[in-house]
Nucleic acid binder design. Structure first.
Length: 611
RNA sequence: GCGCCCGUAGCUCAGCCGGAUAGAGCGUUCGCCUCCGGAGCGAAAGGUCACAGGUUCGAAUCCUGUCGGGCGCGCCA
């Protein structure tokens, strides 16, 4: 059905060819609401020079030579524009019958998101990452890709070490009175404070303690301690509806030899060399100047002159594995997630691709990482290019998102100036419960619905605008359940469900499509855009386009629902419609409901039937 | 200094691979439940699309420059 524009394009190109202008690309677009026609083309403008005629004349010439494709009722020239009217009945009927979902492509995309340091509770800055990543994964899946979601666990980093040392330093004992990661986060912040205000000896003591923990982490001695934190974090991620295929631990990337193997590969590149003189003497450096603009220094250090590899080498090794240039990451079952999907984890004691799984080796990797990490991401990307991978630059996409501020202020996990995801979710669900109590006190499963609506609102706020926008997290705004929000869309869906509950005895096979009109057509024209919207969002890794579309569709449906005639009386009452029209309208409402639910699902937002 | 991102209504944002009068939400004002759900709908008011050039039949959209704001550019992670 989305082929309508394509069909018009072909028809126009044929007509244009007859006029002596072959091989011209003819655009077909939506017609603005105030003009007559459903689809239109400004083709005449482009041909004016070539044919040496004025556009209005050309438009008429084209129309004279045009064979209307099936489903088009009429064509007219509106000034220089060529506008088409579809056959309303057959168009709407076809939209309703069409499958809006993409076919499988047989290609695997690897999406890495979350990747929160396992040392504290996740906050609303991380929320943006998780929601963006999870939505992107869902969009890619909807566009026909197989998607493997990975969550990278930095188990050898300083942050985890600080938190674990803080427990020791304060001789703290976990008593279960609060969530483990929250408890640990407080100790982490307290340790930072103790270090900042402590005496020199105290600072040295803390530093020595942290370093010792780091060594133990590197030796893998504290895996269980990290798992405890991770489990606590996972509760949060799962509560958001995010799930993963594989946890990849940094220490396992090293154990698997990917870092060394990656360096071996890179050493074959003419851009990588060991400096024999100058400030990088004895260090392994990579010349990135051809690939990354805006650097004063063209070289980046991969291995220090003392022989220690830079952090980015681990990332390079990991990514070479992601794209299939390295193999052999061992893994095993880690947990069963809320949906029942099994989560695997990298592990030295596991095996390569257990249970018939096939991890890694994606045609493309998408990394959801904040925009400040752009530079190291560029280095990884450059390394992939230099690794002789024929697919070149396109294998790596950094989905860079701007930071989240808190009431206009910078957040800081280190200083504890944050709002935890758990807290935000709890608050918004509380607010939603109040709203339900007020508007629909008899709602049966109100707790679950409140969770779905509250979570939806929270997620939607994170993806409704472009990733390149700074988000200012403000409570007043976050707790608002009206307007440009998920509840608005969910409400539209619930309304459609409400009608359909009362329409169970309607036999839609008795629909008389000749009875429907412009109002139904407008709705159908919005519905039919879904595949294009999903495809564009997948191509550009832009979840916000789906969010904006969902709002459009809900608006379109709400407008239809509330439509009144010239005397101010409702004229779109589905169930009060005459025979034939009623059935057609019910069929359309079903399509609206399904499409709203589908787009919400692609955004990871539930569509309750009542709210 | 160089590079990247952002600048559209009072505020928060869509629109940006060029097309017809620049669209929402919040806020303000007015109206709409004897009508399938008012978390909704309709209307009013609110815009030199930062500024200046350029390309084009046509520019919020593409190019150049300027001005504001943010971020990045380490033998840190």
């Amino acid at each position: 059905m989305e082929d309508m524009k394509q069909a018009l394009k072909v028809a126009l190109e044929k007509a244009v060819a007859k006029l002596g202008a072959e091989g011209v690309d003819i655009p077909v677009q939506d017609v603005p609401d105030n003009k007559s026609g459903d689809y239109g083309s400004p083709a005449a403008f482009a041909l004016a020079k070539k044919l040496k005629k004025n556009p209005v004349e050309i438009a008429n010439d084209i129309i004279a030579n045009l064979e209307l494709p099936k489903g088009i009722a009429s064509v007219e020239a509106v000034g220089p524009y060529i506008n088409f009217n579809v056959d309303i009945g057959s168009f709407v009927q076809q939209v309703i019958a069409s499958d809006l979902k993409a076919k499988p492509r047989g290609q695997k995309m690897i999406v890495e998101h979350t990747s929160v340091n396992p040392n504290k509770e996740a906050h609303v800055g991380h929320l943006r990452n998780i929601v963006l990543g999870d939505s992107t994964a869902r969009i890619l899946r909807a566009d026909g890709y197989e998607v493997e979601v990975q969550n990278y666990i930095d188990d050898t980093g300083r942050q985890a070490a600080e938190s674990l040392y803080a427990v020791e330093y304060f001789s703290a004992e976990y008593d279960g009175s609060k969530k483990y990661d929250h408890w640990l986060g407080e100790l982490y912040v307290a340790l930072g404070k103790a270090k900042a205000i402590g005496s020199e000896e105290e600072q040295e003591k803390i530093e020595a303690g942290v370093v010792e923990i780091m060594h133990r982490l590197e030796r893998g001695e504290l895996r269980n301690e990290v798992i405890e934190i991770l489990n606590s974090n996972l509760e949060t991620y799962w509560s958001l509806g995010a799930e993963y295929d594989l946890l990849v631990w940094e220490s396992n990337v090293v154990d698997s030899g990917f870092m060394d193997a990656g360096l071996s590969i890179l050493k074959n590149s003419e851009y990588v060399s060991t400096a024999t003189e100058g400030k990088f003497k004895d260090a392994l450096i990579m010349d990135v100047s051809e690939f990354i603009p805006g650097l004063e220094e063209p070289n980046v250090v991969l291995v220090r002159s003392n022989g220690n590899a830079m952090y980015v080498c681990k990332d390079i090794g990991y990514h070479l594995w992601k794209v299939g240039a390295l193999k052999g990451l061992k893994s095993e079952v880690f947990a069963t997630q809320p949906s029942g999907k099994v989560l695997y984890t990298s592990s030295v004691t596991g095996e390569v691709d257990p249970d018939g799984q096939s991890f890694g080796g994606g045609v493309k990797v998408v990394n959801v990482i904040d925009i400040r990490q752009r530079h190291p991401q560029e280095i990884v990307k450059t390394a992939l290019k230099l690794s002789d991978d024929a697919r070149g630059a396109d294998v790596h996409h950094h989905l860079a998102y701007e930071v989240v501020k808190l009431e206009g202020q910078d957040m800081s996990g280190r200083k504890g100036i944050t709002v935890a995801i758990d807290t935000a979710l709890e608050e918004i669900i509380k607010r939603t419960k109040e709203t339900i109590h007020e508007k629909n006190p008899d709602l049966a499963n109100s707790d679950e619905v409140a969770r779905q609506v509250g979570l939806g609102a929270l997620r939607f706020g994170m993806i409704k605008s472009e990733a390149t926008r700074i988000i200012d997290f403000r409570w007043e705004q976050a707790l608002n359940l009206q307007g440009d929000s998920a509840p608005y869309i969910q409400y539209a869906h619930a309304r459609a469900c409400s009608i359909l509950r009362a329409a169970t005895d309607v036999d839609i096979s008795k629909a008389d499509w000749s009875k429907i009109g412009e109002l139904e057509l407008a709705l159908a024209k919005t519905i039919v855009k879904v595949p294009d919207v999903i495809a564009l969002a997948a191509k550009e890794f832009a979840p916000h386009t789906v969010a904006q579309y969902a709002l459009d569709l809900a608006t379109s449906w709400n407008g239809y629902f509330n439509h009144k005639d010239d005397e101010g009386k409702p004229d779109t009452k589905v169930l009060d419609s005459e025979e034939g029209l009623k059935e057609a309208r019910v069929a359309l409402v079903m399509k609206v409901r399904d499409t709203l639910a589908y787009t919400l699902d692609v955004l990871g937002i539930a569509a309750p039937q009542e709210m």
